[in-house]
Amino acid sequence: MSRMIPVVFDGHYERQYPAHAIGVGLSTSRDALVKHADDMADSVAWKELEAERAKWARMLPALADALLPWLLDQGSDIQSNLFAFCVAATVDGIDGSDRAHAVNSLADVLNVDLSYYWKPTRASYFDHVSKSRIADVLREHVSPQAAAEVQRMKKDAAAAAAEVRMAGSGWLPEVLANRTVPEFRSYAWEDDDTDGDADDEARNAGDDPDDMSGETGDATGDDEGLAEAA
C-alpha cells in the first residue's frame, strides 16, 4: 500500500519520487474523468469519493518516505479501509467506443444502481446530443406529445425542457444501462511436437517406439479377439 498511496494521492505527494522496492504498478482515472465529464463536480459519486479522499489526505504523513513506517503503526481497520479506497481509485470505466466494458462485471457483482449516481440533465446528456435524439428519448419515456413539443424548440430550449421532463425518471442512456461484460477468452500454446513427446515417453519406459513386435503383437492379437467377441 505504501507503493499505491503516492499514485492515488498524487496531489498530496506532488513532485515527490521516493525510491521503492515493491514492483507494483497502477494508475487512476481521476484526471481523465474530469477531462471527459464537465459536470463531474456535481456528481453524487464524485462528491462522495472526493470527501473520502480529503479525509485520508488529512491523515497521511506529508512525506512519502514516511508512508511505510506510518502504515505499520496503524491498526487493521485503517489499513484495510485505506487499501479499499486506493483500489477503488484504480477502477477505470472510460472507453472511447460503445462496446461491452469490463467495469460492468464489477457493477453487476456489487449490484450498483447507476441511476442513483447519474441523472439525465443538460450538462450530463442533453446538451451533448442532437435535438432529434432528445425527441426520441422523450417519445419513448414521456410521451409523443412531449417529443413533438421539443421538435419545435431551439436546441438550448429543447435540452432545458428535456431535463425538466426527465427529472426523477431514473432513465439511463444505453452506455450506462447496458451491463454486458466482454466475452472471456483464454489462450494456450499447442505443442506441435506431440509425436516426439510420445517417443520420449516410450524410450523412458524402456520401449522402442519403432519396434512393433513382441508384446505389442500379442496386444494386437488380443484386440482382434475382443473385436470378434464383440
Score class of each variant (00 low, 15 high):
98 D>F: 14
93 G>M: 08
74 Q>D: 02
82 L>M: 14
94 I>E: 07
74 Q>I: 03
76 S>K: 05
75 G>M: 06
92 D>P: 04
78 I>Y: 12
75 G>Q: 03
78 I>C: 10
98 D>W: 08
74 Q>K: 15
86 C>V: 03
99 R>I: 03
82 L>K: 08
80 S>K: 08
78 I>Q: 12
101 H>R: 14
86 C>S: 11
82 L>S: 10
75 G>T: 05
91 V>N: 01
81 N>A: 06
89 A>V: 03
86 C>A: 15
83 F>E: 12
99 R>H: 04
74 Q>C: 08
77 D>C: 00
71 L>C: 08
95 D>G: 13
95 D>A: 12
79 Q>H: 05
77 D>N: 07
102 A>H: 06
85 F>A: 00
81 N>Y: 04
88 A>V: 01
102 A>K: 10
80 S>L: 10
100 A>W: 11
71 L>H: 09
90 T>G: 04
79 Q>C: 04
81 N>R: 15
98 D>H: 12
99 R>E: 10
88 A>Q: 08
87 V>S: 05
82 L>G: 11
102 A>M: 10
88 A>L: 09
93 G>I: 07
77 D>V: 14
78 I>G: 00
76 S>P: 06
86 C>R: 03
79 Q>N: 14
90 T>C: 13
89 A>R: 05
99 R>Q: 05
94 I>G: 04
75 G>A: 04
98 D>S: 13
99 R>P: 01
99 R>W: 03
90 T>M: 11
73 D>A: 15
75 G>D: 15
101 H>I: 07
90 T>Y: 02
71 L>D: 05
82 L>I: 09
91 V>Q: 06
101 H>L: 08
98 D>N: 14
101 H>K: 13
97 S>I: 06
86 C>W: 01
84 A>Y: 04
96 G>L: 12
100 A>N: 11
79 Q>G: 13
83 F>Y: 15
94 I>D: 06
89 A>W: 02
82 L>A: 11
93 G>R: 12
71 L>F: 13
93 G>E: 11
87 V>E: 08
90 T>K: 03
90 T>N: 03
95 D>K: 10
99 R>V: 06
86 C>N: 09
96 G>C: 01
87 V>G: 04
76 S>C: 03
102 A>F: 10
92 D>Y: 09
103 V>G: 05
101 H>F: 12
98 D>M: 12
85 F>T: 00
102 A>V: 13
86 C>D: 07
82 L>H: 10
88 A>G: 11
99 R>T: 02
87 V>T: 08
85 F>P: 01
84 A>P: 01
91 V>S: 05
100 A>M: 09
89 A>T: 02
87 V>N: 02
97 S>N: 13
103 V>W: 09
77 D>W: 09
72 L>T: 08
84 A>K: 05
74 Q>V: 00
95 D>Y: 11
85 F>G: 00
87 V>L: 15
88 A>E: 06
103 V>A: 14
79 Q>A: 02
101 H>G: 09
89 A>I: 02
82 L>E: 09
78 I>T: 15
81 N>T: 10
95 D>H: 14
103 V>D: 04
74 Q>H: 02
83 F>G: 05
77 D>L: 13
75 G>L: 01
101 H>P: 01
102 A>T: 06
75 G>F: 02
98 D>V: 10
